[in-house]
């Protein structure tokens, strides 16, 4: 794995489709940095309905609590990491 030479910022797509989704709503629209990339893993949004899952990269994305909850959060510089499938992420500028 190792450290990436340049921080790669991504924004979680803000879509709200129906169905089985593994991207938590509280992270949609938020900007984070890719901590590491895993996979590819089959897309659970297809597996859940008995379809073959398209293999997708799975990114572990690190967010600050301030980015997720705003400046009034408990401790703004605390962080959160979650695994987000590639099709839920768009390139972004640093927050």
């Amino acid at each position: 794995m190792g450290m990436r030479p340049v921080a790669e910022f991504v924004r979680v797509r803000a879509d709200m489709p129906p169905g089985h989704i593994r991207t938590p709503a509280y992270l949609r629209g938020k900007v984070g940095v890719i901590e590491r990339t895993l996979g590819p893993f089959p897309n659970p949004e297809q597996l859940a309905y008995r379809h073959t899952g398209t293999p997708l990269p799975l990114h572990r994305v690190r967010f600050t609590m301030q980015e997720i909850w705003g400046p009034q959060t408990e401790t703004p510089h605390d962080t959160l990491e979650a695994e987000i499938y590639a099709h839920w992420l768009d390139p972004a500028d640093a927050p």
Binding site: H20, P44, L47, A48, Y49, R50
Partner: peptide, 8 residues
């Protein structure tokens, strides 16, 4: 079936 189907 998959754990994804369980969760769905």
């Amino acid at each position: 079936f998959t754990v994804d189907g369980l969760r769905r």
